[in-house]
Design a protein around this nucleic acid. Structure first.
Lengths: 358, 358
DNA sequence: ATTAGCAGTCTTTCTTAGTGAGTGCTAATT
DNA sequence: AATTAGCACTCACTAAGAAAGACTGCTAAT
């Protein structure tokens, strides 16, 4: 709701400021990210890129404070960026530092070495992000719609219940219990599976779902009973396939090191949010649409638990189609100029790695 | 290694003490568990069950301190139980309070309502433990050896790799990738699966494994090539089946409330241990053998991360066979007399519930 | 064997004062 | 008109001291 509004407000504020004020804000944010201490006018006056007296700086700072970009914790302390301050900084002042060669090498090596299964790869990516940033890493499971069906199987359980097992070309096994209205024998189920395997194997799950629906509507008379059974079973099996409701989180404990989060009450809320997953999923889902880097700063997320946290994400793609999101969670005061390229590159590497496996 | 030794030392200490000293220790531990403050002689002198002057109490306390059962944080503070003190208390002074009817009802209702799958039930049990004790709950996955094989399936992947899928009577689906030395066609794999299903369906995994080994050794000449293939595939599939290396943890964040654990460094170590699972698994595995309630107090666990924690566990059984462990993790200063029955009953209820599902 | 009494120890809490960092305002300077 | 120097003021942080409170250990009396 507020993303667009925020952006406009931000642009507006930017226009009210001259080059010098912006430069000052930039330096202030950079220094604060480095030191973690409120920044005073005297300190900034020593900054070679500014060349201003403390008094002038105080005047500029007063303006910035009026615009809500910085604030002071108390009367006689320096200034600290607010969420809007960070936002302006990130959107138009930040100079992203590209990764060094050896940093890049580490990333690609560690993601390349996970020859195992796909699910493992997500874990590795998440761990990688957390290791390299010393914050928490998160990777959502890829959308299932794009997976290709490789093999499907039905097993009868008791009382109208049937266990569906299907394997995707990505070599993952999924299972689900469905309850058809009619009771099927083991032989019937086998026939149904064989039929589905013969016509849908190799097709994407999204395709299978829509095709199944079409067949049901269209030409019931052309199908014999067996086919009809198979189709209706498939409908149940692929119906309302839950979208990616899960993610792989790593390095949560890294967050315990940061002083701005080390208030127990706050930390508990944050970890509870991680455990319940709902709010995190909701946030990450928003990042699915925007491709490229997406950043939530502090309160912008809309969740109280993330009040003092920022989230830097990027979507990752397989076959040029966005399938998931990955990112880093840390305190608002994080080194965005380093985190952003890390997230960016990791997303690209993960996409590439997933591609090469399928 | 030290469990027996500890016990002997403990019994020895007990014998050196008269009834009065034990009673005093008991009251002291109880009060400390309640208040969390070091207990002084003046306070204890007001205890009606003791009827002693502060001076006498000080003398007794000095004895208890000499035996290492209590200690004082500093000269002018009261006394606090040591790990040995808790141990003696738990082993021979504790009066366990049976659960009230309504407490019991809550437990059985919440465990009964989870009609879903078995894996869910473990989650519910874990959550239940953490909710009811306001500490962390943990439940290990049941041993797989006892599961009955219901159906097995082989799917060819590329390069000598075969995906094994097997379903147990408990309606759980397991999968694993194996790499046979020889390459099999899809048809061969189907035949192998059919053969195995026909002779091993309904047998426990433990049985299947040993039977397979026997067949291989014994009578190679009596088997035709197809059977041989099937058997060798099965061997790979069930070989070295990892024992329960996983657990369901709930309410970790509850632990953040306790002042004795609220040191960030300590808490980080603890949470890291939860994440890596190895040490927790090792601890819980030790509890598998002892049936009934098992308690680790503080350092007894042997892991630094659990220095200030206690672990109260019980094994749970299906068909009179121990299959897993469940328990509660909290600060050493916990209300053992309430926690123990909770763990005990939950274990029994979980066992019963698992039984009724199979 | 138990207890009363007392001196001594140590933590905790409260004040007080001093220091340092930083601000806002005003008046002088460029 | 923009910048700067100077000054009074605010507020957090620190150290040091003093007073209070909670215990203990020891000794001598019961």
């Amino acid at each position: 709701m507020s993303a667009n509004l925020d952006l406009e407000v931000c642009v507006e504020k930017r226009q009210q400021l001259n080059e010098r004020s912006l430069q000052l804000l930039k330096v202030l944010v950079e220094r604060y990210i480095n030191d973690g201490q409120p920044i005073g006018s005297r300190l900034l006056s020593k900054e070679p890129s500014l060349q201003l007296s403390p008094a002038t700086i105080r005047n500029v700072m007063a303006d910035l404070e009026d615009l809500g970009l910085i604030s002071s914790p108390h009367t006689s302390a320096g200034r600290v960026p607010t969420a809007s301050g960070y936002r302006l900084f990130v959107d138009s002042l930040l100079t992203v530092k590209p990764l060094k060669d050896n940093e890049l090498k580490i990333l690609s090596q560690r993601l390349g070495n996970s020859i195992d299964e796909r699910s493992d790869m997500l874990g590795v990516a998440s761990k990688l992000l957390s290791d390299v940033t010393q914050m928490a890493g998160v990777v959502t499971l890829p959308k299932q719609e794009l997976y290709c069906l490789r093999h499907i199987e039905f097993l009868p359980l008791s009382h109208h219940r049937v266990l569906v097992i299907f394997v995707t070309a990505e070599q993952e096994v999924h299972n689900k219990i469905i309850q058809p209205t009619k009771e099927f024998s083991a032989a019937e189920l086998q026939q149904a599976a064989a039929y589905l395997n013969s016509i849908y194997s190799g097709k994407s799950l999204a395709f299978v779902r829509s095709a199944v629906l079409k067949e049901l509507e269209q030409t019931q008379q052309q199908l014999n009973q067996q086919m009809l059974d198979a189709i209706s079973m498939a409908q149940l099996a692929f119906d309302k396939q839950q979208k990616n409701e899960d993610y792989v989180l790593s390095g949560e404990t890294n967050l315990m090191g940061f002083s701005e989060l080390s208030d127990m009450e706050r930390l508990k809320q944050l970890f509870d949010a991680f455990g319940q997953k709902r709010s995190v999923i909701h946030l990450l889902d928003q990042c699915l649409e925007a491709d490229g880097i997406q950043i939530f700063i502090g309160e912008e997320s809309g969740y109280q638990a993330f009040e003092h946290c920022s989230l830097v994400t990027s979507s990752y793609s397989v076959d040029d189609e966005v399938v998931g999101v990955l990112g880093v969670i840390g305190p608002t005061r994080m080194a965005y100029e380093k985190i952003i390229p890390y997230v960016d590159i990791t997303a690209k590497l993960l996409g590439a790695a997933l591609n090469s496996k399928s």
